[in-house]
Computed example of a mutant assay.
Amino acid sequence: MKKDKMKIVSTRCIAKDTIEMVLENQFISGIAVPGQFLHIQVGKHILRRPISIADCNKELNQITILFKINGVGTDELANYQQGEYLDVLGPLGNGFTTDGESKSTVLLIGGGIGVPPLYYLGKTLKENGINIVTILGFQQKDNVFYEQQFQELGETFIVTDNGSYGHKGFVTDVIDQVGRFDCYYSCGPIPMLKALTAKLKGKKGFISLEERMGCGIGACFACVLPTKDGTSYKKICKDGPVFQAEEVTL
């Protein structure tokens, strides 16, 4: 982890209130792994904004982040322009475990702004010879993003709450159509993760949690969850954001 400046290479709107921003920094891009995040200083706001790493190009020293405009901080971040610099701590957190046998099949399940970290994960797994199937859930058609990018990794199902695009319903409604898979990885809202882990109880899986954070390095105890056995707590920013599906109580 390092505090550093990241140059904005490009920024664009890719769906309703959803921004894709490509950042450049040799050190951060060189060590980032799927599932980690950046803690970004925005203007004069006291708290940094945690943003998941959506992609990493080590040859170009670039990190891609995707975020949704849902408050004053992210609205201000969306107005930064190409050529400007961001004050960043990163990469932070423990990422996804990407070990696996080639020719095995994994299921990626993302909801809303929980979709981005799964893309870098999916690319890494595919490079390791693992078959990828993806289910992506969004509120409605205008919110859908990165469909083509995930289709390039493998079979992809799109689900919208109102049925305006793809399947109507929730991501859990589509799992039965997937067939056999050896492991699952998921990121999204807590209600989605609760329903998902309940449906897939006993199946090997990993979940990544979205959470507001204070320090981002495990010092302030603002983002803790109890473990399943009730004996301790886990810090989402430092012990996570990725956990084994049966490790913490949601």
Rank of each mutant, 00 (worst) to 15 (best):
G112P: 02
T97N: 15
D99K: 12
G93C: 11
T105V: 15
E84F: 08
T97L: 14
L108M: 01
N94C: 08
T105K: 15
D99N: 09
T97K: 14
E101W: 05
S102N: 10
L92A: 02
E84Q: 15
E101L: 15
G112F: 06
G100Y: 13
G90R: 09
S104I: 09
G95H: 09
L108R: 04
G111Y: 13
N94M: 11
G114R: 07
L89I: 08
I109L: 14
G100V: 01
D87F: 02
V88I: 15
T97M: 10
F96Q: 12
K103M: 13
L107N: 04
G93V: 12
D99W: 05
L89S: 03
V106Y: 05
G111K: 03
G83P: 06
V115L: 09
G112I: 09
S104H: 08
G93R: 14
T97W: 01
G83A: 01
F96T: 04
S102G: 01
L86R: 06
Q82L: 03
D99C: 01
Y85M: 12
F96P: 06
G110T: 00
P91G: 04
L107M: 11
G114N: 02
L86A: 07
E101M: 13
G100W: 03
L108C: 06
G110F: 09
G95K: 03
G114C: 06
T105P: 08
S104Y: 06
L107T: 00
L86Q: 11
P116L: 00
G111A: 02
G95W: 07
P116Y: 04
I113A: 15
G93L: 14
G90I: 07
L108G: 07
P91Y: 08
G112W: 12
L86E: 08
Q82I: 05
G112Q: 09
G90K: 09
Q82Y: 00
L86W: 13
L108K: 01
G111H: 08
G83L: 07
F96N: 10
G90T: 07
K103T: 12
G110R: 04
I113P: 02
K103F: 12
P91E: 00
P91R: 10
E84R: 04
P116M: 08
I109C: 10
G100P: 00
S104N: 12
P91A: 03
L108I: 06
D87W: 02
Q82K: 15
V115S: 06
S104Q: 15
T98C: 14
D99G: 00
E101D: 11
G100N: 12
L89H: 11
L89R: 11
G112R: 10
F96R: 12
G112A: 05
V106D: 10
G95S: 03
G111F: 11
K103H: 14
P116S: 01
G110A: 00
P116R: 02
P116A: 04
G112H: 07
